[in-house]
Design a binder for these strands. Structure first.
Length: 590
RNA sequence: GUGCCCGUAGCUCAGCUGGAUAGAGCGUCGGUCUCCGAAGCCGAAGGUCUCGAGUUCGAAUCUCGACGGGCACGCCA
């Protein structure tokens, strides 16, 4: 990476300047720069391609003006062998103490060559190698449809999984089904009543529970499957039977919907299995063994207050049934025993209050709780015609994920839901998303990719002109030959640049953007923010468009055409890599 | 009442391990196709970064306090 190479150069220059006693109060024997050397892209183009502000940070210790430090360091740089020739065009110093670099084309050309050599692996960091990660997300209750909030959780989890896979982790994606407990019993009661109502029986619908409207479509499917055969069951048996049938239909509905969003789980983990394998009882005895639980008022409590929570929490109610925390502890202990290096849960922010309890439980079990990360995704506010639609299961105004998908399309939904950082809420206006669907960022990025493909097709097609048709510029085997050259000789790319400084700036900007992809990936992984790559893809698309406006790719000069075709191929590759991580398709034409 | 998240252009959002004149998109207004996809590009207008203190040579960024919005505080799940 260029930034690293520059940082190394600055670091050597620092040591050299230091030895010569040019850095004020900083001792001459200091070899390691006491401030981090960060290379950044300046906001303004006249400040060069890259810049380093380390002199500002050293000013305090050196007790001399930052500009003098910058000058002293910059003076050392020209003497390095590596900077001779094509790599660095200029090194200048600017107030208040920045060192500004104007890049030559050496590294840029190597970047393009690198992209083409590495292809779909370009930008892949090595940090995940050999590490196993479990990402648990969505985990919606099997009692109803998925809404847009689930969609956000789903898209975020899926993008994070893609990102970590790209980074070399061995990733498993898991959906935890809460298919036990009181909510399922309640679903059963509602389902059995609605079943009979749909079959013209006059029975009362439970006042407590899920609204009829909400369950109707699922019960209609159940009726279609099983007919009248359960009509005469007792209330108790009917609730169990219809609850199970309805739940199956709902889970299948959720699975199909998620698949439409291009999400496929490796495992659907059932809470019932947890109970059936006595894992909840196990975890309770583990707590006991660690001396972390006690009985009081007929209930069993976990000593979470000792472990950073605000109070102790109940594990087993006086009724004898276990709490959500106990079940969840059992589930997470099971995850630990499966041996992952990292476990990430994606939860809706409305569950943030559970984090201390679960973390406390993991501490109580003596497992390394830092292996468990919980990412909270804030809510999605949907609006329609500018009116906010509140999401409440009790109201008929809920907009379901399926509806949004049908209206806006998978790619746009994934892009919009992936783009924002999880801790920020999203305002998703359906009418706006539809109205601007041709101009939305997802489309724009795809358009850029399609444009690259169109140019490459052009290179292989006969040219039609007013003075008659000309044969196709190149054949497929010509392009294969070019590719071999691109990979082995970065100098072929020298021909792509213009001498006009404004045009040259666009050309360099595009390559520089390709160059920063690996860094973007690294930062996205470290901060668990795949959304950064969505925004990166947009910026790359924008650089391509600017390049395209001023740089004709297919020209009558072979060396120029060859170099620019290579750049187009590289841009297409990186767009595709970035889109792949956020799960948006990269179309050849549109 | 307590805890967590958020507050940046008319709207939607970046930037937040402190650094140069705070950036995009949409919307608005104005340019731009005999030429590889104009679904594009260029330009203009639009900001006391909610407010107030503090730390600092320097704060949208860090600290504290207001104000505003959201969420959570069960022997529910």
């Amino acid at each position: 990476m260029i930034k690293e190479k520059l940082a190394a150069i600055v670091s050597r220059a620092f040591a050299s300047a230091c030895r010569q006693g040019l850095l004020g109060a900083i001792p001459v024997e200091t070899d390691e720069c006491p401030a981090p050397i960060q290379i950044e892209k300046p906001r303004l183009p006249e400040h060069g391609d890259l810049a380093c502000g380390v002199a500002l940070k050293l000013a305090g210790q050196a007790k001399i003006a930052p500009i003098k430090i910058a000058q002293a360091i910059a003076d050392q740089i020209g003497r390095e062998d590596e900077t001779q020739g094509t790599y660095l065009e200029s090194v200048t110093v600017a107030n208040p103490g920045f060192i500004n670099f104007k890049l030559g084309t050496g590294w840029l050309n190597e970047t393009i060559s690198d992209v083409l050599c590495q292809g779909a692996s370009y930008g892949k960091p090595a940090l995940g190698a050999g590490k196993k990660v479990l990402i648990e997300y969505v985990s919606a209750n099997p009692t109803g449809d998925l809404h847009i909030g689930h969609g956000r959780n789903a898209v975020f989890g899926s993008c994070l999984a893609n990102l970590l896979k790209f980074a070399g982790y061995e990733v498993e994606e898991e959906f935890y089904i809460n298919d036990a407990g009181e909510q399922i019993a309640q679903l059963g009661r509602c389902a059995f009543a609605l079943y009979r109502i749909l079959l013209d029986r006059d029975v009362p619908y439970p006042t407590e529970g899920y609204p009829q409207e909400y369950l109707k479509e699922f019960l209609e499917q159940v009726v279609a499957q099983v007919g009248k055969q359960y009509l005469e069951l007792s209330e108790e048996e009917g609730a169990v039977k219809l609850g199970d049938l309805t739940m199956k239909v709902i889970i299948e509905h959720q699975r199909v919907l998620l698949e439409k969003l291009h999400i496929k789980f490796d495992r659907w983990y059932s809470e019932r299995d947890l109970h059936a394998a006595d894992k909840v009882a196990d975890v309770l005895s583990e707590f006991q063994k660690h001396g972390m639980s006690y009985e009081s008022e007929g209930a069993l409590w976990l000593k979470t207050k000792e472990l950073g929570d605000e109070r102790d929490r109940v594990l087993r109610k006086s009724s004898g049934s276990t709490t959500y925390l106990a079940n969840d502890s059992a589930y997470h202990l099971d995850k630990y025993r499966r041996g992952y290096d990292l476990m990430i849960n994606i939860w809706g922010a409305d569950h943030h209050g559970q984090v201390p309890g679960l973390k406390g439980a993991m501490k109580a079990l003596g497992v390394d709780e830092t292996k468990l990360e919980v990412v909270l995704t804030q809510i999605v506010n949907l609006s329609r015609d500018g009116q906010i639609v509140r999401m409440s299961k009790r109201m008929g105004t809920v907009v379901m994920l399926g509806e949004v998908l049908d209206e806006v399309g998978v790619d746009a939904v994934r892009y919009y839901l992936a783009e924002s950082s999880p801790q920020n809420s999203i305002n998703f206006d359906l009418e706006l998303a539809k109205k601007t669907s041709r101009e939305n960022p997802a489309f724009y990025i795809q358009y850029a990719h399609a444009r690259c493909c169109a140019i490459l097709r052009r290179a292989l097609e006969p040219m039609q002109g007013t003075d008659g048709d000309k044969p196709a510029p190149f054949t497929a085997s010509d392009l294969d030959g070019f590719m071999a050259e691109y990979k082995s000789n970065p100098a072929v790319f020298q021909a792509l640049y213009d001498s006009d400084s404004e045009v040259l700036a666009h050309q360099k900007a595009l390559v520089t953007r390709l160059e920063s992809f690996p860094q973007e990936v690294l930062e996205a992984v470290e901060t668990r923010q795949p959304g950064r790559l969505a925004r990166y893809a947009f910026e790359l698309a924008n650089e391509l468009q600017k390049f395209y406006e001023v740089s004709r790719v297919i020209t009558d000069q072979l060396s120029v055409t060859k170099a620019r075709l290579g750049l187009i191929l590289a841009t297409k590759q990186v767009l595709s890599n970035a889109l792949g991580i956020i799960g948006v398709s990269a179309p050849e034409r549109m």
